[in-house]
């Protein structure tokens, strides 16, 4: 039943009596859970989460990213190899990014990407047997914010994957609250990388510190911190 949610589970433990969907009497299991014949077995250590009507998954603290299809990712160009760029995305393999997967790119008009550039891309192919494949366009051929970022300033830093999930969840007010006090741009990659750019270096540093400090804060604490931060930046 729903009571399972929020408890810590260890690998090898069985979970029984999960809530099934009323129509199909099925359970959908996500990361950290595995079906073994009739029962559900835990494979990762973490808190069990539940979402209506029948979704279950394990929320675990990973430091190492494993590519998932559809994830926005911040990669660093490690090499140029013929038709593709090879990007370090922090997982076990380098990811590939075709030079045609940019907005307005054609065979003749190659995108301007150099080794060491930071690229914000989406994961198109994520399969445990193949290397991840990235793109910087959507299905309409538009970039939608994807592409090479950070050419004119900004700063990228690494955080835990748990914090990234928190930042992107609809309950978290951090990015919105920070925006009340200052103007900034940011890109958040599911692989634990965050890129921020504000109008000055001190603002950027403040943003980085605020984001890294917010991992275990509640929304009230975040509000208080942001207020303090804007005051400090204004020189009070």
């Amino acid at each position: 039943m729903v009571d399972h949610a929020g408890h810590v589970y260890l690998p090898g433990e069985l979970i029984c009596n999960l809530k099934e969907s009323e129509k199909t009497s099925k359970i959908l299991v996500g990361p950290g859970l595995r079906q073994d014949e009739e029962s559900i077995i835990v494979t990762k250590c973490g808190l069990l989460r539940f979402k209506e009507p029948n979704f279950y998954w394990i929320d675990s603290h990973l430091k190492r990213y494993v590519a998932v299809k559809g994830d926005p990712i911040i990669g660093i160009v490690a090499a140029k190899a013929g038709d593709v760029f090879r990007l370090d995305i922090g997982s076990s393999d380098l990811a590939t990014l075709s030079y045609l997967a940019f907005e307005g790119a054609t065979k003749r008009n190659r995108p301007d990407v150099k080794v060491g550039d930071i690229v914000y891309a989406k994961c198109m192919v994520a399969n445990k047997d193949m290397e991840p494949e990235l793109v910087c366009i959507d299905s309409n051929g538009r970039s939608g914010g994807l592409g090479v970022i950070g050419r004119d300033g900004g700063f990228m830093f690494q955080t835990s994957l748990n914090l990234i999930r928190k930042l992107l969840s609809s309950d978290c007010i951090l990015l919105k609250t920070l925006g009340n006090g200052m103007h900034y741009e940011c890109a958040i990659g599911m692989n634990g990388r965050v890129w921020v750019k504000a109008k000055s270096v001190s603002h950027t540093i403040a943003l980085c510190n605020a984001i890294s400090a917010a991992e275990y804060m509640s929304n009230e604490q975040i509000k208080a911190m942001c207020k303090k931060l804007t005051n400090a930046l204004a020189g009070f």
């Binding site: 950290g32 494979t43 990973l62």
Partner: peptide, 11 residues
């Protein structure tokens, strides 16, 4: 291994 979040069959 637990701390690293590696997928395990059992402990």
């Amino acid at each position: 291994l637990l701390d690293a979040g590696v997928s395990l069959k059992f402990l």
